[in-house]
């Protein structure tokens, strides 16, 4: 007996909401990517909970894939940020929007 299954889902939901708020409200490219990472992590957590609930290893496999996708996404995202910084000298979204318009 650990915890009710619902509590794991609620925990994942709370982390996801925090990551979403980070990705949506922060005006810094790095923080946006960080928020996306947090959301992915929350998704992986929900999958592992479900995996334990039904005693199936499929959920863990999906969590592993999420990990790999997160790694790929972050490498591409950060490379994009670097090239944006090289080109515009800033990673602040507001300034970027003004200078690219």
């Amino acid at each position: 007996m650990i915890v009710p299954y619902g509590h794991v889902i609620v925990l994942a939901g709370i982390i996801f909401l925090l990551g979403l708020l980070c990705a949506v409200t922060r005006r810094n490219l790095i923080m946006i990517v960080l928020g996306i990472e947090i959301m992915l992590n929350a998704g992986a957590l929900a999958f592992i909970g479900a995996s334990l609930r039904w005693q199936q290893m499929g959920g863990q496999a999906v969590a592993l894939f999420i990990l790999a996708i997160a790694a790929a996404e972050v490498s591409i995202g950060l490379a994009l940020i670097v090239s944006v910084y090289r080109k515009y000298g800033t990673i602040h979204v507001d300034i970027l929007e003004k200078s690219t318009r």
Binding site: A68, A71, A72, S75, L78, A79, S83, K87, Y88, H92
Partner: peptide, 29 residues
């Protein structure tokens, strides 16, 4: 395969474009 593509993509994107960043607003976030 996706990870390999990500590696290649990051490499391509990370290559210097041959253009210096604009220093006038480089220190602002």
């Amino acid at each position: 395969l996706l990870l390999l593509i990500a590696v290649i993509g990051a490499l391509v994107l990370g290559k210097p474009a041959g253009k210096k960043p604009n220093k006038t607003n480089g220190n602002r976030i």
